[in-house]
Simulated assay, not measured.
Amino acid sequence: MPRDAATRVETVPPDVLALLGLPQFGDLTADQVRGAVCVWGSERLTAERAVDLGEQDGPDGRWWPRGCPACTASRAHRGLFEHAPSCEQCVDSGERCEINRILYRLVRAGHR
């Protein structure tokens, strides 16, 4: 999986993205749709401070959401609590679960 140089985390796979909870396309501003502003907040993003959430399908075609490190970390932290209790791998040993590892990296990247 390729690494994102801006945040030093792996590209966010669909299973992890579902736990982060992207807003509905219709609820976003034009700046959020084009990745200039965090999809969960109003922070303007730069290449150095953005977490790329991957290409998505929207009602008007493709869009490329991005989040600020703080909002992404907060969502990832909640995602860990939602995911871990029902995941056999996480219950046995969290470091064996790819979803757990990616969420944990997103949390850490947001607190740098």
Rank of each mutant, 00 (worst) to 15 (best):
V37P: 01
V37H: 03
V37T: 14
V37G: 02
V37W: 02
C38E: 09
C38L: 06
C38H: 02
C38D: 10
V39T: 12
V39M: 09
V39R: 08
W40L: 05
W40T: 02
W40V: 03
G41E: 05
G41C: 12
G41N: 06
S42W: 06
S42Q: 13
E43N: 04
E43T: 15
E43C: 09
E43G: 05
R44K: 10
R44N: 02
R44H: 10
R44I: 01
L45P: 03
T46R: 15
T46G: 14
T46P: 01
T46C: 03
T46E: 14
A47G: 03
A47D: 12
E48F: 08
E48S: 11
E48H: 12
E48C: 01
E48V: 07
E48T: 06
E48N: 13
E48K: 14
R49M: 07
R49Y: 00
R49V: 04
R49D: 14
R49K: 13
R49T: 15
A50T: 01
A50P: 08
A50V: 01
V51Y: 00
V51N: 02
D52E: 12
L53D: 07
L53T: 04
L53Q: 05
G54M: 07
G54E: 08
G54Q: 10
E55F: 00
E55Y: 01
E55M: 12
Q56A: 09
Q56M: 11
Q56F: 09
Q56C: 12
D57S: 13
D57M: 11
D57P: 02
G58D: 09
G58N: 09
G58W: 06
P59H: 05
P59C: 05
P59F: 05
D60T: 13
D60Y: 10
G61D: 11
G61T: 08
G61F: 13
G61H: 08
R62H: 12
R62A: 15
R62S: 13
W63F: 15
W63N: 01
W63R: 06
W63T: 02
W64G: 04
W64E: 10
P65I: 07
P65M: 05
P65F: 04
R66F: 00
R66M: 06
R66K: 15
G67T: 04
G67S: 12
G67C: 07
G67V: 04
G67N: 08
C68R: 06
C68P: 01
C68M: 04
P69K: 06
P69F: 14
P69L: 12
A70Q: 13
A70R: 15
C71S: 10
C71D: 15
C71P: 01
C71H: 13
T72V: 15
T72Y: 04
T72G: 01
T72P: 04
T72L: 01
A73F: 06
A73L: 05
A73V: 07
A73C: 08
A73N: 08
S74C: 03
S74N: 08
S74W: 09
R75L: 03
R75Q: 14
R75D: 09
H77V: 00
H77P: 00
H77S: 11
H77N: 04
H77L: 15
H77D: 13
R78A: 14
R78S: 13
R78M: 07
R78H: 10
G79T: 08
G79I: 02
L80D: 07
L80V: 02
L80H: 06
L80T: 00
